[in-house]
Each structure stands twice: as C-alpha cells, then as structure tokens.
C-alpha cells in the first residue's frame, strides 16, 4: 500500500478547515501532540502538521483567452490569472530523505503503507530531518523537544471502532469543498489514483528526487466558449441576438 492524499487545487477555497481539524484531532492523539505557544498573546505560534498558503498565479496575456491551461496542459501555459490555495502537509515521499538522515532511527517509513512517522521515544530533537524536508512538513514540538509531523491520522484510518466512512484523515473529513481525498496510490482503481491520472498533478520540486506520494490536482480547464454563431439563424436566435445587443448597449 502507498497511502496518501490527493488535494484539488481547483476546489480548495483556502478556508484552513483542514488545518484546524488536524490540530483538533492531533492535539490530543496518541501519535500527535501539536502545542500552541502564546496562543492568546501578542505573538501566537505553534506546531502545525498542515499549513495553507495562498498564491497568485499571473496569466500569460498573449495566450488565447478561451482556453485555460495548467501544468497538465502540454504547453504549460497558464493564461488566466488566478488565486491558488495550497495546503501543505507531509507528502509521505517514496524517497524520504528525512528518514535517511535521521541519526537516531526515530524517523521511519512504514513498509506496509508508506506512512512516514516519528517515534517520540527515540527522537532527540536535532532538527536535522526538518532540514532535509523540502516541503516544510516537519515542525518541532518545543514542549517535549520532539519532531512532529502529519501521521496521515494513522490512529484513525485503522480504527475499527469507527464507521468505515470515518476511517479517513481528519483533514479529509473536514474539507467543506471535498478538495481533499485519501486513498492508496498503489491501487490503480482507487479514487486518488484515478483523480491523479485524469486531472494531472503539479510537479513540486520533483527534480530533488523525493518522489512525493501526495498529489496536487491541477486546476481544470474551463469549458471552451464557441465564438461563432450558427450559420442559419432562426427566429429565436435573432431574438437572442437582439437581446444581447440591447444588453451590450
């Protein structure tokens, strides 16, 4: 198994509900613990397993305005300016260099499902794994001096006391626009595999060779608008054209 998330950059509205749900679940969970520092003070901070950042993508004005591309577009044009919300948590990389560099063996990648975890009873808080992570997925819990990261809610997804539909990461369940999906990328028929296949995924620092498991689904192309009118216009078309002209006045 190769468990991971598929995050839809088209439908994510950047509401931070996933991060709040993550904090709520992992704040007290067995594997987790995500403390806040100075939460009601002047400089509130804390450890988060998931952070949402917002970006502006500026379009290419020379490109046809009727087609919207993304990285899945062969020409890689991004013609329309848009705002993209990017939630980032651990990608559960196949080549997890954070695990390789860990001197204590506290960081490990599970062979059975590919989840990258930290064993708090071995971690010495040297921060070296966070240096090795290009995605900023690891944050130090300053209260106990141990590195913390997304566990893919490993304490939820295998919990047989939960209803089957609830055996998903807290962030996936919380997302109001269903922009987050959870599944097994080794199964070509799973929802996440099919989504990544059909929508195309963004390549995020792929040249570093970490092979991230999570997929960021590229923004869709909008439906192409036909510019030309029908050749033989009927009475209803003439009426529509008349109304359109009125509106354009």
């Amino acid at each position: 198994m190769r468990l991971g998330l598929a995050i839809d950059l088209d439908t994510c509205v950047g509401c931070h509900a996933c991060a709040v749900a993550c904090k709520e679940w992992n704040g007290q969970s067995l594997m987790g613990g995500a403390p806040d520092y100075d939460a009601w003070g002047k400089a509130p901070s804390g450890a988060w397993y998931n952070r949402i950042r917002h970006y502006e993508i500026e379009g290419d004005p020379t490109y046809s305005p009727y087609r919207c591309g993304s990285s899945s577009d062969a020409s890689e044009h991004q013609p329309l300016s848009k705002t993209v919300n990017v939630p980032m948590s651990c990608m559960h990389c196949e080549e997890a260099h954070c695990v390789t560099v860990c001197p204590t063996g506290a960081s490990y990648k599970r062979a059975e499902d590919g989840i990258v975890l930290v064993d708090p009873s071995r971690c010495m808080g040297c921060n070296y794994c966070s240096w090795a992570c290009p995605y900023g997925a690891r944050e130090l819990d300053e209260d106990v001096g141990v590195m913390k990261k997304c566990t893919l809610c490993v304490d939820r997804i295998y919990d047989e006391q939960l209803a089957v539909e609830d055996r998903q990461p807290a962030c996936v369940l919380a997302c109001p626009t269903h922009a987050r999906h959870f599944g097994d990328y080794d199964d070509p028929q799973s929802k996440v595999s099919l989504l990544a296949e059909s929508r195309g995924k963004q390549s995020m620092l792929d040249d570093l060779g970490y092979k991230p498991t999570n997929a960021y689904l590229s923004p869709r192309k909008p439906v192409e608008i036909k510019a030309e009118l029908p050749i033989r216009a009927g009475l209803s078309d003439k009426a529509k054209a008349f109304v359109n002209r009125l509106i354009q006045l």
């Binding site: 970006y55 993508i57 500026e58 379009g59 290419d60 990285s71 991004q78 963004q202 995020m204 590229s218």
Partner: peptide
C-alpha cells in the same frame, strides 16, 4: 508549485 509559466507570488 508546479505552475511553470507566468509570475507566481
């Protein structure tokens, strides 16, 4: 971010 063309900020 994987948006190869255009300005990203």
């Amino acid at each position: 971010l994987g948006f190869k063309r255009g300005n990203v900020r």
